[in-house]
Amino acid sequence: MKIKSITQIGNEISIITDTGESAVFYSFSAHKDVYTTTSPGLYKYQLKQFKKDIVKSEWNVEQLKEWYL
C-alpha cells in the first residue's frame, strides 16, 4: 500500500491509497490521540506508522506530504 493523496479537511486529515482505499484521521486530546475511520479494504493496523507521524508532525499536512508523497 502506498499513499497517493493527503488532504486536510477541517481539523481532520484524509488519505487515499494507490488501491483507492481511504482513511480519515481525527484528533483527540489536543492532537495527542488519533482516531481513524477507514474504507472496508483498509485495515487500521496498516496505518500505525502514519498515525505516529501525524502526531510527530503536529498535524502538519505539508510535512506529511513531504514524508509520504
Rank of each mutant, 00 (worst) to 15 (best):
K56W: 05
D18T: 14
F50C: 01
I54F: 02
S5D: 11
I15T: 09
I9G: 04
N60M: 02
Q46H: 07
E21L: 01
K52L: 13
S22F: 00
I15G: 04
H31K: 13
I13G: 03
Y35I: 08
K51I: 12
E12Y: 08
T19V: 07
I6D: 06
K32N: 09
T37I: 08
S14N: 08
Y26P: 09
T7W: 03
L42S: 02
T7M: 11
K65Y: 05
S57H: 05
Y43R: 10
Y45H: 09
F28Y: 09
I6C: 08
E62L: 14
I54W: 03
F50S: 01
V24K: 09
E66L: 14
V34N: 05
I15C: 03
L64Y: 07
S5F: 06
G10W: 10
K52P: 10
S39G: 00
T37R: 03
V55H: 04
Y68V: 13
L42V: 02
Y45S: 12
S29M: 13
F25Y: 04
Q49E: 10
S14P: 00
G10D: 14
E58W: 00
G41I: 10
K51L: 02
K56G: 02
L69I: 15
K44F: 00
E12T: 12
F28G: 11
F50M: 02
K65R: 15
V55L: 05
T19K: 14
D33R: 09
S27Y: 09
K51H: 03
L42F: 01
I3Q: 07
V55D: 06
S14L: 11
Y68P: 06
V55N: 07
K44L: 01
Q46V: 06
N11T: 15
K32P: 01
K56L: 14
K48C: 06
M1R: 12
V61T: 14
S22K: 07
P40C: 02
Q46E: 15
N11Q: 15
K65H: 07
L64Q: 08
Y35D: 06
Y43A: 09
Q63M: 13
M1Q: 10
V61N: 00
E62Q: 14
T19S: 11
I54Q: 07
S22Y: 02
F50Q: 01
I6P: 03
N60G: 04
K4W: 09
T19M: 09
S29R: 11
L47Q: 05
Y45N: 10
E58R: 13
V55R: 04
K56Y: 09
T37M: 03
H31G: 10
F25G: 04
I16A: 07
Y35S: 07
K2N: 15
D33K: 11
Q49M: 04
S39F: 00
Y35Q: 06
I3Y: 05
A30L: 10
Y26S: 13
E21R: 04
K2S: 12
K2D: 15
L47E: 05
T36E: 04
K44W: 00
W67C: 12
